[in-house]
Each structure stands twice: as C-alpha cells, then as structure tokens.
Design a protein around this nucleic acid. Structure first.
Ligand code: MN
Ligand code: MN
Ligand code: MN
Ligand code: MN
Lengths: 140, 140
DNA sequence: TATAACGTGTAGTATAAGCTATAATTGTTG
DNA sequence: CAACAATTATAGCTTATACTACACGTTATA
C-alpha cells in the first residue's frame, strides 16, 4: 500500500472515531449517572457535559435511532443492552488510559483531562501496551 | 471545583481540541507536501486526507480566514508564518507520540494510526512524560 | 496551436453538533 | 388542588464537515 493511501486510511479512521466518540462519552456518562444516582436525566447529562440541554435532547435522539438508549417523552434515559455493553467497554478503556498516564508521571487532573480525548483513538494493541506498562515496575 | 464542573470542563476542552484538530492536520500535511514536493495542491491534500477535493477547498477557505494559509485562485497553497509555526509544532508533537508508542511496543503502522488521533489530545505535561519515557532505557 | 487531461472552483445538499428562546409537561408544595 | 419550579421538548438558527455534479482555468501533448 503506497504511503499516501495509508495516510489517507489513517485520517479516515480518525474521522470514524469522531463519529463514535460522542456516543461513547454519552453512554459512559449515562451509565455513570444511573449507577450512582439511580437515573440519568437530560439536565444532568447536559451539566456534566457542559452543553445546553437541547443539545443533549438531540444527541439522545440520535443514540436512540442507533439503538444505544431508550427514552420516552418526559422520562429519564435508559441504556439498551448494546448501550450498556458499550458503556462498560468505554469505562474500562477510560480507566486504563488514566491509570497509564498516572503511571508515566502525569498528575491526576491532567490525566483525566487528556484521557477524555485520547481514549477514543486508542487501538486494542495500544491499550494492551498501556496495560502492560501499568503492571510493570515503577518508572524513573 | 465540584466533580461535575471539572468533568464538564474536561469535555469542553475535548470539544475545543476538535475545533483545532482539522487545522492542525491540514497545516502539517501542507508543510509536508511543500517540503517534499515543492508545492501543496488541493488535489494532493485531498488524496492524502482521503476526502473529496471540494471538501479541501472549503477547509482551505477557513484556514485562510483564520490566517494559517494563503492561496490564490488556481494556484497552490502556501503557509503563513503562523501556519508554518503551527505545522512545525504539530510535526514535532506527532513524532513524539509515534516514537513513544513505538517505545512501549506498538508496531509502526498501529503507532502511526493511533498517533493521528491521539496527538490532538496530548497536553504539554503528557508530551513531556512521553519524551522522558522515550529517552529512558528499553522497557520490558 | 487546438484540444484533451487535469486541476480548481462553485452550487446545492446532507448531517452533526452546538446555541437561544419558547412551549409543554411533570412534580412539588403551599 | 392549584400554583409554581423544574424538567423536557420544540422551533429556528449557525457553523463545520462531508458529498456529488457541473463549470471553469491551466497545462501538456498531439
Ligand atoms: Mn471521552
Ligand atoms: Mn470517558
Ligand atoms: Mn492528526
Ligand atoms: Mn499529524
């Protein structure tokens, strides 16, 4: 595969990641709200994401269309089986990325900040490398 | 700062990163084309990014509006001082991220793929940690 | 030099993601 | 139980990023 084609494929993959990224953060956040407070409401999701609530309502519509959540008018938001599975996967990945950044000497707040973006662009192979590094003996 | 607020701030930062991300990849790619082939043409940029050429033309318009590139009708694309500086910064960062992934055992192709997305979400502190690790003795 | 090939621009469309403002519903409380 | 506060929905707008189809310039070559 010529170099230009491979580069194009890489950029294409990043664009794909951006499409799933929002869904991933939403389901992870919704799962977190359900598990910690008993239910996920649009207002809470909006506050946690730092966006206006109509933005959340529209996003929830897309997630429902894509089979990740279920919601009835004026009721709170539920995850489908698929959505719950995605949330679990994302939560695990999120924790690995944070743990890994901590391990190489990044402070807690920065690790959380960077992980929120990095997590969506980490392949299985890289994730495995992160885990390996976390389990290795202290660095430095 | 309450937990919900900090989480919102983190998500906000990721959204900001997404706004600069495209500009970063464009200027880096344009610089690469200029340095390796003598000029950057919209078609080449399109092929390397894996998008249709009108997409590039519109993006170039935005980059020009934002003072990163200059272009005249039917001529190739040039970087402004600002654009060139951004390209250099991004190239360096890109290389650090790739080098770091290689160091922890990720193969060349995967490293390139993941780096294309990760690079935009790496803070200065994390980048410094990556550099430290690259310079450290072999792992494993 | 005429024309074909290539590159660039424009028009028009779609979707996602965001916003503000306003309306409708629900739930709480006096 | 009526009124009010909180929550949710909708309408209407904006910008960015993509696409296809078509028009226009430039460049190369026959
Ligand atoms: Mn995230
Ligand atoms: Mn996350
Ligand atoms: Mn990139
Ligand atoms: Mn890059």
């Amino acid at each position: 595969m010529p170099d230009a084609d491979r580069q194009a494929a890489n950029f294409q993959r990043v664009r794909e990641a951006h499409q799933t990224e929002l869904a991933e953060d939403y389901v992870e956040l919704i799962a977190d709200l359900i598990d910690s407070t008993g239910e996920a409401r649009a207002t809470d999701v909006a506050r946690r994401l730092g966006v206006a609530h109509p933005t959340v309502v529209k996003a929830i519509g897309r997630l429902q269309r894509d089979g990740l959540v279920e919601s009835l008018p004026y009721r709170s938001i539920f995850l489908t089986e698929t959505g719950r599975a995605m949330a679990e996967r994302c939560k695990r990945r999120h924790e690995i990325v944070v743990g890994f950044l901590r391990k190489i000497g990044v402070d807690e707040e920065t690790a959380e900040r960077d992980a929120e973006g990095i997590e969506h662009h980490v392949s299985e192979m890289t994730l495995a490398a992160f885990e390996r590094l976390i389990r290795s003996k202290p660095l430095g």
